[in-house]
Structures are given as structure tokens and as C-alpha cells.
Write a protein that binds this DNA or RNA. Structure first.
Lengths: 338, 338
DNA sequence: TTGAAAGCGCTAACAG
DNA sequence: CTGTTAGCGCTTTCAA
């Protein structure tokens, strides 16, 4: 690794002090009333030497590493990959770098990744913690480490959180099917221990109740975290036996696999069963099937999350004003079938 | 941000020196012949104080940040997301953290991201550089910064590189269609300036030549970087007019969109046109269409890339033995239709 | 077996 | 307007 030029190099070659160079290079020429010619000399030499500040040194001194960490379930899940994408764009706007790690939705892995990164190398965290991470979040709060929770909600610990109103989304989705004349609407869910997920089902139930019909247990199905196609096939067969005419998938992965199943069974969408999916339009685009969807505005959520996080970091020393903000970003309803 | 406990804290509380504590905590008790009881006292207190080494300080001192950077086209592209996933898993095995950035396949963005990260904060790079990044790579070499190029090949600059043999893959894919009795095989390509991409087409041509038939220009089509469905539709219509009976997509994005087009045109796969895609089985799985595919073993490629990179980093001071290794990872041929 | 001290590159009082 | 100095937390000679 070639040695980079340092502040000292510039200072020495110019016969001035490191302080002066530091001021100029940090844009404090005005503030510190440094002569224009001096400033220019410094700037020129810095450019010529291809000077790059050493962020380790800077960070060590200032206590800010200009690095954020993102701990998500799995970066290869397109939903999270899109978050990563937009978070990186936003972070770079603030001159922050982004480290990421995968928790695989496992509490222990999440905790160890988090712990590994809690060492002054990271100024703040963006997290989608797995079920049961309350104690980790509480620890972070106690340690006053800035973090924001994305697309997750923990009833027992107040945090800054960015998500859509999943209850409302579930309600609207169901209402829409009711409005379109569907009366036996099924819902297939997964990760029901996740608050956001259970809220979607609550919204569904509420919409049904609101319209006078009551929800039928045999049409409400929960699958474990790692669904394979055969388990979905089983559930779908069972809801078909129950004469479902509408079907809501609470995740796009469920939808993609589920639509494959419907195809294999020669069920027509939306004629025989009207289908709606949460999260993505991927299910629609990739399966080339006319369904509607509740879409999370990933870009906007990322922006909000980063805005809050940066604010928290900047406030760390001052008043702790920004506590426990819950940002409900509006979800988007995409229609593609009646 | 709560203040973490430091080496000094431990040293003071135990009435010993920082040196001693450092030795113990870095597992050098044996080597430095430190008494067992002393070592245990240090270890115990460190655990009690929840001591975490400050990586900024450590890095500043040792010149190693234990951080790698990944600069890819776009993390939200599933192909790259999978790389990110496996690279992170591998990196953490070596106790490395991973920063990522997106180049959007733009030379300038790539250069500026790279430049931003070249500051001692990063020990090495994993790169999929866009077309025209030769000078950046040369600069890295000159600066002796460890890096490995993934899934890209630059004829004009020798680097450590990990990729599949795209020529061979193109050859095999085509050969396979020929073996299955297809005689008018079309190929739709994109990013033809990318060496890996043009190699796929070269392999295709070579297989045709090898079998005695010559390649027909009207069946070889190149699309620009950002393809939309309408441009693909146009190309597909044209190759159908040319009576193609086989079709090779050189990327999975092309395949996914292309298969949608074929569906809309009511072309039967594989009866009317036999389809093969590069890169992923996503096209198959998601479109639920019987096609075959050349699959890149992302996990293995990631492992190789990281193995090489770590080796380079460790060797930085010693002999520069590891120069310009080209790892050809075996690709996988997945069959699903005759 | 252990400790003192220097220094990685940078910033920020404080002093002139 | 510019310089001196101390020190962030850690590793590493060198000395005891």
C-alpha cells in the first residue's frame, strides 16, 4: 500500500503548521481568517500531492468515523437489497460510508454482528432486527448509540422507527377486494411473530368486520419463516377447498411461489381467484400475472431513515430531542386487476 | 455515544501497563511469556468491562483497518446482491468488515467512489469496474493497493481476476442447442463492450463454426446497457421473422423481459423456440418457463475473490508473488428442457 | 515477566 | 492571521 501524503507533508513543504493546513482543508479558511494566498497555496499543493485525509486518524480524533452500519436479514433478498441501494445513495449525500451485515433473521447472529460493529468504527446503525431483539435495542439506547429501526416495530421498546402503516395497508387491500365483489378472501402470511406482519392480518380482519362479514379461521393461514413451495401448495389447496375467491399474500416471496402454485393448479387469475401481494411488484412483473399490490416506498423510507439517523448523530452531544419518532411513510397501492 | 472502556482503563484498574494488557488481549500471552494469573485477571476484567478494541485506533496504528470495500454496478441487481451476500459471509470469516458502493456502471461514478474510499480506511477492494476503468485499475496497481476484479476482464491491464470462462460457456450453450437439433440459433446480448459479454458471443460463433454452420448476422443482436421491454420486443420480432428456433439471452434480465415478450407473442417454449439464459435460474424460476441456463457459481467466486484479496493484503509487505492471477471458476450448466 | 515512551495522522484549545 | 501543543486508543520497540 503506497503511503498517502499527510497533512504534515503539506505543512512541511510549505513551511507552515499542520493546524493551518487542517483549517484550510476543512473549509475553515474564512472562519479562521486565513489569507487567501496561503489558502490557495495549501489547496494547490494538496491537489498536487493527491492528498486524502486519513479517516482513521480523523475518526480517532473526532470520535466520528463517518461510517454507518446496516444490519438486515439478507442482502440477497431483493426487498432489502433495494433498501441497501437507496440507503447507500443517501448516506453518500451526507458523506457517510455504509457497512452492511446479514442477520439471516437470527437473533443471535444479529446480536453478534451488532456487537462486532459497536466499537467506535460506526457512528450509527440502520436495523431490521429479528424477532426477540428487544434487549439489543435497549442496550443500544442505554449506550446512547444512534440507531433507527426500519420496517420493524417493537412494542416493548420505544425507538426511532420508519415503516408503513401495515394495519392500514392490510385494511385497504382487503377493502379493495370486498369492493370488487370478493366475499371469501383468504390471506397467507408468514413470520406472524413479526409485528408488521401480524398487523397486516389485523387490518385484513378489521376490514372484514367493518364490512359486516366475519373472518373465517380456515382462510387465515400462517407459514413458518422459510417457506418452500410444497408447504404453500398445501395451504393453497386447502383454501381452494374452502372456496376462496380472493387471496392476499403478505410478502412477495409468498406471492411468487403462490402464483406458481395457482398456475400449476390451472387456477385463473383474477377470474377464479383475485390476487394481491405486499411489498413488491416483482410478483406481478416476474410472474406476468395480473395482480394488485401494496408497495412500500423504499426510496422514501430510506431517505427518512437516514435523515433521522444523521440528525441523531449530530445531536448526540446536545439535547436528546429526537427520541422515539415513529415515521409512517405512506404506502402505495398499485392496481392492475379489477 | 457511551464511552467504551479502553486498554488504559483495564491497565489502570489492574495497576499494570497498557502494554501488558495489549499483549494479553491480542493472544500474545504465550509468546510474551506473561504469567497465567496476570493474563486471567486481564481477560476477566476485559470481559467485565465489555471491552471492545477501538478499530480506528488499532487501524491508525497498524495501518490495517480490517475493512474491505465492494464497488459494484448496483446492489439492487440480484446478481450483485448475491455476490454481496457471499462476500460478506467470507469477509466476516476473516474478521473483515465490508463497505459497499454502487457505480451504476458509470466510469466516473466508479472512479469517484473508489477515490473516496482510498484513504487508509480500506485495506482492499473487490471491484466490478465499468467499461473504460483501465486507468483506475492501473492507478491502484501503482499505489500497491490490493484489489481483485470480479466478473470483469480487462485485456489491457493485468490484474487478479475471478470469473467464469465466458467463451466456453457461450460455446457450450450453443453446442447444446445444436445437439438438440436447433439450427437457427439467435443470441441477444447487451453491454457488448464488456469483455465477458463479447466472449459469450464469441463462444456462440465458435460453436456454430465448429459444427459447420456459419453464424448469421441477423441472428446476433446487441442491445444497449439499459434495455426496456419494447426494444427487446422489437429484436425478438425480428429474429422470429428470421425463423429462429433457438434463442440465447446473455443476461438474466434480458431473459426475464424476453420471455415476457415471447409469451405475449404466444410463442411456445421450447416447442417453437428453445431458450437459454446466462447468469441465473431466476428467469426460469420466476417466469416459470422451461429453459436451460449457464449459472455462475457466485458463492465459489466470492470465496476465491476473498481468498486472493486477503492473501494480497497479507503479502503487501513481503514478496509480491500474487500478481495477475486469473481464476476461472467452473460455471454450471443447468438443464431443464430438451 | 513487565513497563515507559514514542508515534500512527489528525483536530482543537490556547497562545501569540 | 498562524503556530504550539496535547491527545484520541492502540501497538511496538527497547529497556529493565
Amino acid at each position: 500500500m503506497a503511503k498517502n501524503s499527510t497533512l504534515k507533508d503539506i505543512a512541511n513543504q510549505l513551511g507552515v503548521s499542520k493546524t493551518l493546513v487542517s483549517f484550510v482543508l476543512n473549509g475553515k479558511s474564512k472562519e479562521k481568517r486565513i489569507s487567501k494566498e496561503m489558502a490557495n497555496k495549501v489547496l494547490d499543493l494538496a491537489a498536487k500531492l493527491n492528498y486524502k485525509p486519513n479517516y482513521l486518524a480523523k475518526g480517532l480524533r473526532t470520535g466520528k468515523s463517518m461510517t454507518l452500519a446496516l444490519i438486515i436479514a439478507d442482502i440477497s433478498n431483493p426487498f432489502f437489497a433495494k433498501f441497501a441501494r437507496h440507503l447507500e445513495i443517501e448516506a453518500s449525500k451526507y458523506d457517510y460510508k455504509l457497512i452492511f451485515a446479514n442477520s439471516d433473521e437470527q437473533k443471535d447472529k444479529f446480536a453478534s454482528e451488532l456487537n462486532f460493529l459497536k466499537n467506535g468504527q460506526v457512528d450509527g446503525f440502520i436495523l431490521t432486527p429479528p424477532i426477540g431483539s428487544e434487549s439489543e435495542l435497549k442496550a443500544l439506547k442505554k449506550e446512547k448509540i444512534p440507531f433507527v429501526v426500519l420496517d420493524r416495530y417493537f412494542e416493548k421498546v420505544k425507538t426511532n422507527t420508519v415503516l408503513i402503516d401495515n394495519f392500514q395497508a392490510g385494511f385497504d387491500a382487503t377493502q379493495r377486494m370486498i369492493d370488487n365483489g370478493r366475499s371469501r378472501i383468504a390471506i397467507i402470511n408468514t413470520n406472524k411473530e413479526l409485528h408488521t406482519m401480524s398487523q397486516r392480518v389485523s387490518g385484513y380482519k378489521s376490514a372484514l368486520a367493518f364490512s359486516g362479514s366475519e373472518s373465517k379461521p380456515e382462510l387465515i393461514r400462517h407459514l413458518p419463516f422459510n417457506q418452500d413451495k410444497s408447504s404453500i401448495m398445501e395451504v393453497i389447496n386447502s383454501i381452494i377447498d374452502c372456496k376462496a375467491d380472493g387471496l392476499i399474500f403478505t410478502t412477495s416471496k409468498l406471492a411468487i411461489l403462490g402464483i406458481e402454485c395457482l398456475r400449476e393448479l390451472d387456477i385463473k387469475i383474477p377470474e377464479q381467484i383475485s390476487v394481491l401481494s405486499f411489498d413488491e411488484m416483482d410478483a406481478y412483473r416476474l410472474c406476468y400475472t395480473p395482480i394488485s399490490a401494496v408497495v412500500q416506498p423504499i426510496e422514501e423510507m430510506s431517505k427518512e431513515a437516514l435523515r433521522i439517523l444523521i440528525q441523531m448523530i449530530d445531536q448526540t452531544t446536545s439535547t436528546d430531542k429526537l427520541e422515539n419518532v415513529m415515521i409512517d411513510v405512506d404506502f402505495i397501492f398499485r392496481e392492475s386487476c379489477p
